Simulated assay, not measured.
Amino acid sequence: MPKGIATPSLLSQIITAKYQYHMPLYRQETQFKQWGIHLSRRTMSDWMMKSSRCYD
């Protein structure tokens, strides 16, 4: 994503966890908190929507 702080590998991890492993964003948010990373599900959702638009 242009001007974004999310790396391609982070985006792919979030998207893969959600769709391949059926892990909802609220559970991913909890997992990131356990690792000491504050990343809201709203932010992850926005990133997913923006990344899908990059290739339209």
Rank of each mutant, 00 (worst) to 15 (best):
D46N: 11
A17T: 04
R42F: 13
Q20D: 12
S12R: 04
I5D: 03
T30F: 11
I14K: 06
P8F: 07
Y19H: 10
P24S: 00
I14H: 09
K33A: 15
M48S: 02
K50W: 08
S9C: 12
T16Q: 11
A17M: 06
I37W: 09
G4W: 10
Y21P: 00
G36H: 06
T43G: 00
Q31S: 08
A6K: 09
Y55H: 09
G4R: 14
W35R: 14
G36K: 10
G36W: 10
Q28W: 07
K33I: 06
R27F: 03
P8W: 08
A17Q: 07
Q20S: 07
I5T: 09
H38S: 12
S12V: 13
E29D: 04
Y21I: 06
L39H: 01
K3M: 14
R53M: 05
H22L: 14
I5W: 12
A6P: 00
W35T: 00
Q20V: 09
R53F: 04
G36R: 10
M23E: 06
P24W: 01
I5R: 14
P24N: 00
R42W: 11
Q20T: 08
S40D: 15
K3G: 13
T7C: 06
P2Y: 15
Y55V: 14
F32S: 07
Q31V: 01
Q28R: 12
P2W: 14
E29F: 09
G4C: 15
D56F: 05
H38F: 03
W47Y: 06
T16I: 10
S12I: 14
T30W: 13
P2S: 15
F32E: 07
P2I: 15
T30A: 11
M23Y: 10
M49A: 00
D56P: 08
I5M: 10
R41P: 03
M23P: 00
T30M: 09
S45I: 01
Q28D: 01
S40H: 12
I14R: 06
S12H: 05
S40M: 05
S52L: 13
Q13G: 12
D56Y: 08
K50L: 03
M48N: 02
S40K: 07
I14G: 10
S52P: 02
K50S: 03
H22G: 04
M44R: 05
C54S: 11
M48A: 04
D46H: 07
Q34C: 03
G4N: 12
R53N: 08
S9R: 03
R53T: 05
I37S: 04
K18Y: 09
I15L: 05
S51Y: 09
R42Q: 14
R27N: 02
C54W: 01
D46M: 01
D46F: 02
A17N: 09
T43I: 00
H22V: 12
S51A: 10
A17I: 01
M1H: 10
H22A: 15
R41V: 01
G36E: 04
T43D: 01
T16V: 11
A6T: 06
K50I: 01
E29C: 06
T30P: 13
S9I: 13
C54R: 03
Q20H: 09
I37V: 15
S40N: 09
L25P: 02
L39T: 02
Y26M: 00
Q34T: 13
S45W: 05
R53W: 02
F32K: 09
Q28C: 03
